[in-house]
Design a protein around this nucleic acid. Structure first.
Length: 420
RNA sequence: GUGCUGCUGACCG
């Protein structure tokens, strides 16, 4: 049985779900009754890869086949549905878990609910679940605390997040590095530098700083225009025995560019290339975007070249940045040409690609071409979003086609788009 | 050593 379960696991890791399913059926035929782990393993990787209906089907057939789903199976499904943004199904599984007399929600169940509801913007419901968790005297673990702090920061309630952090001490629980990082990030996003630095000191004293901590701090300092501080944290990394990862470089290049330090960004990128730094497409796309925004389009081709030379694949983000660079420089023909070449680079246009081009075309009143692109976008299954409508309306307003703009406005509202 | 949950980075108005 264990051997079969390991085979299932291997197939799943290779994303060969059909094969894993066959193994499951094979087991039945051979008289090895699959257990809750056989099912759990397969349901888990189906869920992780977004195949929720298949995962649900398997889950539903478990009782019929005489295998009782345990709480982990429920947890896997709830988490999977939340990660797809499918709140209704996630909640339905939760209800079934509460009703099922043979299983009880455990701490991960509550954590998944709290996290999922927060990520879907349902903060109130999430905090209700938390209260229920406390009332039931289920303990809370570190996942619970960091999830809550994350949710509270995300809902703009930093004081609430700080309170949860303080509560941990009262509960006799020491924060781990994820709890610290989450709160640190919350402070930086709200520009609360003073509190951030106090927390940073505590983290140092506790010896609780990871490379993520540094990434969070560097990103936040850049966001708050503390360029010199960000750079000196970066320069001190080696003596802190911390090794920069690809995110570090992404954050650095992005932060430097956004603050106008393009040449510094270029030199860090080059340094990383020569020194075996861990670079990925994020760093390059930040660099390319920075150059495009400054109109240094002639340098972009060279960077694109270096990017592929260093093993980083071109992706839609990169192409979109370049296309936008051309649009901003009023080089529409170049933008359209690059758009035409995207697919040969292995990139399919996204809604952002279309928005960028629609923006460029409507700025110069080439509406008929813009509408051709809108049609193409719809055909490819992309839904126009707030940006799409905004740019079309802006173009129409600029050439006094107010009636058409108003028409679009109504259409946007009908589609359920919330104007900002 | 068989399955579940938390932290950080890039593109469009």
């Amino acid at each position: 049985l264990q051997t079969y379960n390991i085979l299932i696991k291997i197939s799943c890791r290779k994303k060969q779900f059909d094969k894993a399913n066959q193994l499951l059926n094979w087991m039945w035929k051979q008289g090895f009754k699959p257990d809750v782990f056989s099912y759990g393993t397969l349901i888990n990787s189906l869920a992780k890869n977004g195949h929720m209906s298949d995962a649900l089907k398997l889950f539903n057939e478990m009782p019929e086949r005489g295998v009782t789903p345990d709480v982990t199976c429920y947890n896997i499904l709830m988490d999977g549905f939340f990660k797809k943004g499918d709140i209704l199904n996630a909640k339905e599984i939760w209800e079934r878990l509460l009703k099922d007399p043979s299983v009880y929600p455990n701490i991960p169940s509550y954590n998944i609910m709290i996290n999922g509801l927060c990520k879907c913007g349902k903060f109130d419901e999430s905090f209700q679940i938390w209260h229920r968790m406390k009332k039931n005297e289920r303990g809370q673990d570190l996942f619970t605390y960091s999830t809550l702090i994350h949710g509270l920061c995300g809902s703009g309630n930093l004081d609430g997040a700080t309170r949860v952090y303080k509560e941990m001490a009262e509960d006799g629980v020491s924060p781990d590095v994820v709890v610290y990082n989450t709160l640190l990030n919350g402070y930086l996003r709200e520009g609360r530098i003073k509190e951030c630095l106090e927390l940073w000191k505590v983290m140092g004293k506790e010896g609780c700083r990871s490379v993520v901590s540094y990434n969070v701090l560097i990103r936040g300092l850049f966001e708050n225009k503390k360029v010199d501080d960000a750079i000196s944290i970066w320069e001190l990394l080696p003596e802190k025995d911390c090794c920069a990862d690809s995110t570090t470089y992404g954050v650095l290049v992005h932060g430097l560019c956004k603050n106008g330090y393009l040449n510094k960004a270029l030199s860090i990128l080059e340094e990383a290339e020569n020194g075996g730094g861990d670079l990925d497409t994020f760093a390059y796309s930040s660099m390319i975007n920075g150059l495009c925004k400054e109109g240094r389009l002639d340098e972009v081709v060279g960077i694109l070249d270096r990017m592929t030379k260093h093993g980083c694949k071109t992706n839609p983000h990169v192409c979109n940045a370049v296309i936008n660079g051309f649009v901003q420089a009023s080089k529409l023909e170049d933008a359209l040409r690059f758009f035409g070449d995207m697919v040969s680079k292995g990139c399919s246009p996204t809604v952002v690609t279309y928005n960028t081009l629609i923006n460029g075309l409507s700025k110069v009143e080439r509406f008929s071409e813009a509408y051709v692109l809108v049609k193409e976008m719809l055909q490819k299954g992309w839904k126009p979003n707030l940006f799409t409508y905004t740019m079309l309306m802006k173009g129409l307003c600029q050439c006094d086609k107010l009636d058409m703009a108003l028409n679009l406005w109504c259409q946007a509202l009908e589609k359920g788009i919330k104007p900002d």
